[in-house]
C-alpha cells in the first residue's frame, strides 16, 4: 500500500464520527429542536382573528388556560373549571388504565414466563392488539360498545344477563369505563413484553433456593422476583404513563371527548383548541404544559423509585 493511500485512509477514518453522527444531529436539530423552540414561541402568541397575524401576548395564554376569567381578564387563584375537569378526566383515564393494565400484564407475564409448550404462539397472540393502528382499535371498541348492534350488548342480552341494551357511549361514566377497557386492551401487551424481558434477569437458582426453604408463592414473588423485576417495572410504568397522557387516537375516535365533555382529556383538549377552534397560541401553551408535566413525571418516578432514567 502506498504512503499516499495510507494518508487518505487515515483522513477518511478521522471523518467517520463526523460523517456518521453529523447528519443525524442536523436532522434532529431541524425536526425536534426547532419545532420545540417554535412551540415555546407560539405559546406566547395569540392569533389575531381579524388580521390572522400572530401577536406576542406574554403569558396570557397560560393564564387563560389555568385560571377562571371574569370580564375578560384572568382571576388569579381561581382555576378554570375546564382545566380542572379535563385534568380530572386525564387523571382518572391514565390512573385506571395504567393500574389495571399493569396488574393484568404482570399476571400474564408471570404465566408466560413458565416453561410451556406453544409459548411462542401464545406470546404472539398476546401482543397483537398493541401492533394494530390505535385508530382501528378505538373504532373497533366503539363498535363493540355500540348500543344496538355492538357485540357487548349482544352477548349480554343473548345470554339473558341484561334485558335492555346499555347505551355505553352516551353515558359519561360508562363512556370513560369503555375508554379504559380499550386502553387496557391496547397497551397491556406492552407491559407484558417489558416485564417478560425483565423476568429473564431473575436467576433460577434463587427460585430453587426459595422453594427449598418452603417460601410461599407470595413471598417468592416479593423477595425473589420483585427486586430483579423492579427496573423493568419502573420502565414499563414510566413509558406507559407518559404515553397515555399524550394519547389522542383512542379518545378522539371512540368518544371524541364526549358525551358532553365527560371524556375530554388533555390530549383531546389540546387538539380541539389548536385545530378545531384554530387557536394555535393556547394550543401551544397546552403543549408546553403537557411537555413540562411529562418531564416532571419522569423526574419524580426516577428520583423516588430508581437511579437514573434509561439506566435500568
Amino acid at each position: 500500500m502506498s504512503v499516499e493511500n495510507k494518508k487518505l485512509r487515515r483522513k477518511l477514518d478521522r471523518l467517520f464520527v463526523p460523517l456518521t453522527v453529523g447528519p443525524t444531529l442536523v436532522w434532529i436539530a431541524a425536526i425536534i429542536v426547532y419545532p420545540t423552540v417554535q412551540l415555546l414561541l407560539s405559546s406566547l402568541q395569540f392569533r389575531n382573528p381579524i388580521t390572522n397575524e400572530m401577536q406576542f401576548v406574554g403569558l396570557r395564554n397560560f393564564q387563560r388556560l389555568l385560571f377562571a376569567r371574569e370580564g375578560g381578564s384572568a382571576v388569579l387563584g381561581v382555576f378554570n373549571p375546564n382545566f380542572v375537569s379535563f385534568t380530572a378526566n386525564t387523571v382518572v383515564y391514565v390512573g385506571f388504565s395504567v393500574t389495571i393494565s399493569f396488574l393484568l400484564g404482570l399476571g400474564i407475564a408471570l404465566l408466560l414466563n413458565k416453561d410451556l409448550k406453544g409459548r411462542g404462539w401464545l406470546r404472539t397472540a398476546v401482543i397483537v392488539p398493541w401492533i394494530m393502528p390505535y385508530v382501528m382499535s378505538g373504532l373497533m371498541w366503539r363498535w363493540m360498545f355500540q348500543t344496538e348492534y355492538g357485540a357487548i350488548n349482544g352477548v349480554l342480552t343473548q345470554f339473558g344477563i341484561i334485558a335492555d341494551n346499555i347505551p355505553f357511549l352516551s353515558d359519561g361514566t360508562l363512556a370513560m369505563m369503555a375508554l379504559i377497557v380499550a386502553d387496557v386492551w391496547v397497551f397491556t401487551p406492552f407491559i407484558i413484553i417489558i416485564l417478560l424481558a425483565g423476568l429473564q434477569n431473575v436467576p433460577e437458582q434463587l427460585y430453587d433456593a426459595a422453594e427449598v426453604d418452603g417460601a410461599s408463592r407470595w413471598s417468592r414473588f416479593w423477595n425473589v422476583t420483585y427486586p430483579f423485576l423492579k427496573p423493568s417495572i419502573l420502565v414499563a410504568l414510566t413509558i406507559r404513563i407518559i404515553f397515555d397522557i399524550r394519547a389522542l387516537d383512542l379518545v378522539w375516535v371512540m368518544t371524541g371527548g364526549g358525551p358532553g365533555k365527560a371524556t375530554e382529556v388533555w390530549a383531546s383538549w389540546l387538539y380541539r383548541t389548536a385545530q378545531v377552534f384554530n387557536e394555535p397560541g393556547p394550543g401551544a401553551a397546552l403543549g408546553v404544559v403537557l411537555l413540562a408535566t411529562t418531564f416532571v413525571i419522569v423526574a419524580v418516578l426516577y428520583s423516588v423509585f430508581g437511579d437514573s432514567p434509561y439506566n435500568a
Partner: peptide
C-alpha cells in the same frame, strides 16, 4: 450529553408539537 439529549427527545409528546409542525 448528545446521546442523553437524543434519548430525552423521545420523551417529548408528539401531540404537544402539533401547533409548530402545522406552522412549519
Amino acid at each position: 450529553t448528545l446521546l442523553l439529549s437524543i434519548v430525552g427527545a423521545r420523551m417529548i409528546p408528539p401531540i404537544a408539537l402539533i401547533v409548530p409542525f402545522f406552522q412549519i
